[in-house]
Simulated assay, not measured.
Amino acid sequence: MVDGTYAKMWISDGILFFVYKEIYEINRSMAKEIVSQRLQLQNENSYPIFCDLRAVTNAQKEARDYLAIEGAYMTKALALLVKDDHSMAITQLFIKTSSPAYPTRVFRDKNKALLFLQDYK
């Protein structure tokens, strides 16, 4: 398990769990640190990723772009957990415009998110 400055990460049952800590706004340097920690934890193994974004308020465009491109390395599939309809709409729009190279979906229900990732283990 990694308990970083911005997120907690661990691997369980073939899924990488990624839970952001309370952050008002993610910037590019934060995004780089987060991706670096995740890749160290993964140790050159690809995983489906469960990412809990509920404690994040905002992310700068440069951070979002970094996470979508460089941050996509070693990702089989991505389930994003958000807290409300507003976050859901913004995140879905971002996915549509960034066109990730792996299956990506947004959820408000943790169990549905984990079910989605089962096929990618």
Rank of each mutant, 00 (worst) to 15 (best):
M1S: 13
V2H: 02
V2T: 13
D3H: 15
D3I: 14
A7V: 12
K8Y: 08
K8I: 11
W10R: 12
I11L: 04
S12H: 11
D13Y: 04
G14K: 09
I15R: 02
L16S: 05
L16I: 08
L16E: 08
F17H: 14
F17D: 01
F17L: 06
F17N: 10
F18M: 09
F18N: 06
F18T: 00
V19D: 06
V19P: 03
K21F: 05
E22T: 13
E22L: 12
E22Y: 10
E22Q: 13
I23M: 05
Y24C: 11
I26P: 03
N27Q: 08
R28S: 11
R28H: 11
R28M: 13
R28W: 04
M30P: 02
M30T: 03
A31F: 06
K32H: 08
K32A: 09
K32D: 05
K32G: 00
K32W: 09
K32M: 15
E33R: 09
I34G: 00
V35L: 03
V35Q: 04
S36Y: 11
S36L: 09
L39G: 05
Q42N: 12
E44M: 09
E44I: 05
E44S: 13
S46I: 07
S46A: 15
S46G: 11
Y47G: 03
P48A: 13
I49F: 01
I49Q: 04
I49L: 10
I49P: 00
L53P: 00
R54T: 14
T57R: 13
N58K: 12
N58A: 15
A59C: 10
A59F: 04
Q60N: 11
K61R: 13
K61V: 14
A63Q: 01
D65A: 15
Y66R: 04
A68F: 14
A68Q: 13
A68T: 14
I69M: 12
I69G: 11
E70P: 08
G71T: 08
G71A: 08
Y73N: 13
Y73S: 13
M74T: 10
T75E: 03
K76E: 07
A77Y: 02
A77S: 08
A77H: 03
A79N: 01
L80H: 07
L81T: 04
L81F: 09
L81N: 06
V82S: 01
V82L: 02
D85S: 13
D85C: 10
H86A: 14
H86Q: 12
H86W: 13
S87K: 04
S87N: 07
M88P: 03
A89C: 02
T91N: 07
Q92I: 08
L93H: 08
L93G: 00
L93R: 09
S99W: 08
A101V: 11
Y102M: 10
Y102E: 02
T104D: 10
T104C: 12
T104G: 05
V106S: 02
F107L: 02
R108H: 06
K110D: 10
K112D: 15
L114A: 06
L115C: 10
F116Y: 10
L117K: 00
L117N: 02
Q118T: 07
Q118S: 15
D119E: 15
D119C: 08
Y120P: 03
Y120T: 10
Y120D: 07
K121T: 08
K121I: 07
